[in-house]
């Protein structure tokens, strides 16, 4: 048994990591089951029911309009019509057109796999990235705080090798869990689409697009794991990673957002991390500034826009990874182990 397989075993034996992973997977199961239960297939019966409801709503509206108009005319004749209740001219009270009551508005929720599956990949990525970050931080943080790292270094006095092997074990475990979860997730939503919606239009191109989104999600999960691992290793405690993230979220994101809003900075979202996460997953996020009017050829006021692309996200992620992991490696090499 070598160091890598030992570290994989150690990771698997960590109770917190097991429970955390299980909790994350249960959340995903709950979402998948919820989506299955809240969607249904659209057939002639559902369409007929929706049309019946739309017609019923239209007729009710017509009846109410006629009743209101009659009350208005009676009040005008009697001369005691309250000003704020009825218009000047009762003939202006007319029922809405029939096409204002669309049957499709009354159709039950249905899952269009081609249209909606990409959005669900963001959900699965978010949950697994959180698990990866906390699990990665705990894996190495607990080793530092309980003296396990020191014990291990007495056996394998190769600091960088030990650290990177641990990271490798973590990332490969995350890779395995994410790929497995991704496959099960796809299968679950394919079943939801097949039984509670539609899987029509799934061309090779559509699958390729989902595949690429899934790969970006996988990369994000691995990045989160590596950052949690790196931060906890830098601070030699799990709490540093969790506290650091809390600090970044509260001070760096919420606080920064408030300050930038007060300073009336354009495109505040371009300073906030979630924008880059979304841009990474969706390939592009277009920010709009409605305070700025860009006149179009037709004279309409168009907002000023700024695109955040997955490439800019990748630069941010790469820099974060280099800084955190580089710092952890430097710290491992230079700092005494006491």
């Amino acid at each position: 048994m070598n160091l890598y397989t030992t570290e994989l075993r150690r990771l698997g034996k960590r109770r917190f990591v097991r429970y955390l992973t299980l909790a994350g997977l249960l959340v995903l199961v709950a979402v998948a089951v919820g989506m299955f239960l809240t969607n249904q297939k659209i057939g002639p019966a559902q369409v007929a029911e929706a049309e019946r409801v739309a017609e019923r709503d239209y007729q009710q509206n017509v009846a109410m309009t006629q009743q209101f108009r009659a009350e208005c005319e009676r009040a005008k004749v009697a001369g005691d019509a309250p000003r704020d209740r009825f218009p000047e001219d009762c003939s202006s009270i007319t029922p809405p057109p029939r096409d204002a009551f669309q049957a499709e508005w009354h159709l039950p929720a249905t899952f269009e796999f081609r249209e909606e599956f990409a959005e669900t990949l963001i959900t699965v990525t978010a949950v697994l990235a959180l698990v990866a970050f906390v699990g990665g931080a705990s894996f190495v943080g607990a080793e530092w705080s309980t003296g396990g790292m020191m014990n291990l270094l007495l056996w394998r006095p190769q600091r960088i090798r030990v650290l990177l092997t641990k990271l490798g074990a973590l990332l490969s475990a995350l890779f395995g869990v994410t790929v497995l979860a991704g496959v099960l997730w796809t299968a679950a939503f394919w079943a939801t689409g097949s039984l509670r919606g539609s899987t029509a239009g799934m061309t090779a191109g559509a699958w390729q697009s989902f595949g690429l989104t899934g790969l970006r999600g996988l990369a994000l999960v691995l990045l989160a794991g590596a950052l949690g691992f790196g931060l906890a290793s830098l601070g030699r405690h799990t709490a540093l990673a969790l506290g650091g993230v809390l600090g970044v979220m509260v001070v760096g994101q919420f606080g920064l957002g408030v300050v930038l809003a007060m300073a009336q900075v354009r495109f505040i979202e371009s300073w906030l991390l979630p924008t880059y996460l979304l841009a990474w997953m969706n390939k592009k996020v277009t920010l709009q500034d409605w305070a700025a009017c860009q006149a179009s050829y037709t004279g309409e006021c168009e907002p000023l826009t700024r695109d955040i692309t997955w490439q800019s996200s990748s630069v941010l992620f790469a820099v974060s990874l280099v800084v955190v992991l580089g710092g952890a490696i430097w710290s491992m090499r230079r700092r005494d182990i006491t």
Partner: peptide, 28 residues
Amino acid sequence: VGAIVESPQFFPHFSARDTLSLLAGAGG
């Protein structure tokens, strides 16, 4: 070289057998 340095420190949620088994794995 076998060594213990200062007070013994082990991961508290592992059994003694697991603790030693992991060290044995790491050290071949």
